[in-house]
Computed example of a mutant assay.
Amino acid sequence: MRPDGWHLTHDVDEHLARAGDFLRSRPAPHTMPLTVIERLRTDGPDAYGAGAAVFGRLERAGEVRAAFHRLPARGLSPTALTPEGADGLAAHLAGLGYALPYVSAEHRTAASFADAWQRHTGATPTLRGRLHLYRLGTLTPPEPRPAGRGRVLGAADHDALLRWCDGFVTAVGETPAVDAGSWATSRFADKRFTFWEAPDGTPVSLAGCTAPVGGMVRVDPVYTPAHLRGRGYAGAVTAEVSRAALAAGATDVVLFTNPANATSNALYRRLGYVRVTDFAVYDFA
């Protein structure tokens, strides 16, 4: 039996072999590690850019109780931790000489780790923002449904997809921008996308989703250009990709929302999504 405590590795297969059952036991709150690990496993170690990802798992009496991952040049993403667990992880990583630009986790865990990291390193945490995590209950398609249909994008749509994803990034203020050169390591490259198209074939809204892993699919992103909003297109395309995920066997269909966007939060609740918890991101000076 392995000793109790945190065990770190750069080997995604080793991490998945030890922590996979734990991560799959709560597919909704573990949506990020599940999809990150699956992408690294299928696309290779450079899927998120050059450099080695780091994985960690907390073992007690031979069982995994928590896990984290850190992608190259990015912050820490742990699963839920008690305040004591967050302090133990912060002390362990600080003792190994890690420098972290941010932590992203369930909001109580993120806050506990931010406080602990400041105690152990002196780095000052600043709350960057929060996100709501929703899980689909009973899908309720919008009524009336706007005219048109959903269409899954193929290879011939890549140039159009680049433009739409760049439009989304610009609209929400994300960085870096999306272009042909950065596409392969962007957060969009492993998604499957669907257009909602008007009856004449003009795309009016876009939704992406992750491949199924552990029975979980995450809808991300959903984007309608500003001049086409308010016509029900976002609801239609979200319902379409959600229906397709359920038809493919997904047991957990999830998505994140910006708490400040009352319109999108109300829309997803009407479609049958139920708020599970909040996530938070703290930057470290």
Score class of each variant (00 low, 15 high):
residue 199 P to F: 01
residue 210 T to D: 11
residue 102 Y to T: 11
residue 24 R to V: 01
residue 9 T to I: 10
residue 197 E to H: 08
residue 96 L to T: 05
residue 115 D to C: 09
residue 247 A to S: 13
residue 43 D to H: 14
residue 258 N to W: 09
residue 262 A to G: 01
residue 250 A to P: 09
residue 132 H to P: 09
residue 274 V to D: 15
residue 275 R to K: 15
residue 194 T to H: 03
residue 267 L to V: 03
residue 244 A to H: 10
residue 259 P to E: 12
residue 276 V to M: 11
residue 263 T to G: 04
residue 46 D to M: 08
residue 202 T to Y: 10
residue 272 G to N: 13
residue 112 S to F: 10
residue 59 E to K: 02
residue 206 L to Y: 06
residue 208 G to I: 02
residue 241 V to P: 02
residue 39 R to S: 12
residue 107 H to N: 14
residue 272 G to P: 11
residue 265 N to K: 04
residue 113 F to I: 11
residue 162 L to C: 01
residue 126 T to M: 01
residue 203 P to F: 09
residue 193 F to P: 00
residue 262 A to M: 00
residue 239 A to W: 05
residue 80 A to N: 05
residue 7 H to T: 06
residue 209 C to R: 13
residue 71 L to M: 08
residue 205 S to I: 04
residue 13 D to K: 03
residue 21 D to C: 00
residue 199 P to C: 04
residue 123 A to F: 01
residue 137 G to L: 15
residue 283 D to Y: 10
residue 81 L to I: 05
residue 245 A to K: 12
residue 92 H to K: 12
residue 19 A to N: 07
residue 221 P to T: 07
residue 43 D to C: 14
residue 268 Y to F: 12
residue 61 A to G: 10
residue 272 G to F: 07
residue 235 G to N: 07
residue 174 E to A: 10
residue 44 G to Y: 09
residue 226 A to Q: 11
residue 197 E to I: 00
residue 203 P to G: 07
residue 257 T to E: 05
residue 146 P to Y: 09
residue 132 H to W: 13
residue 19 A to W: 01
residue 153 L to T: 00
residue 104 S to F: 09
residue 232 G to L: 12
residue 218 R to A: 15
residue 205 S to G: 11
residue 267 L to P: 02
residue 224 T to Y: 12
residue 197 E to G: 00
residue 280 A to G: 04
residue 240 E to L: 00
residue 130 R to K: 14
residue 108 R to M: 10
residue 283 D to E: 12
residue 263 T to K: 06
residue 205 S to N: 02
residue 269 R to V: 14
residue 21 D to T: 12
residue 120 H to Y: 03
residue 244 A to P: 07
residue 263 T to C: 04
residue 281 V to T: 14
residue 77 S to C: 14
residue 165 C to M: 13
residue 69 H to N: 07
residue 167 G to D: 06
residue 175 T to H: 13
residue 171 A to Q: 10
residue 27 P to N: 05
residue 202 T to H: 10
residue 84 E to M: 08
residue 54 V to W: 07
residue 185 T to N: 02
residue 49 G to I: 09
residue 247 A to F: 09
residue 123 A to Q: 03
residue 75 G to F: 06
residue 248 A to S: 11
residue 223 Y to C: 00
residue 195 F to M: 06
residue 102 Y to E: 11
residue 268 Y to V: 07
residue 71 L to N: 02
residue 114 A to M: 12
residue 120 H to D: 04
residue 119 R to Q: 06
residue 94 A to Q: 03
residue 2 R to H: 14
residue 278 D to L: 15
residue 235 G to W: 02
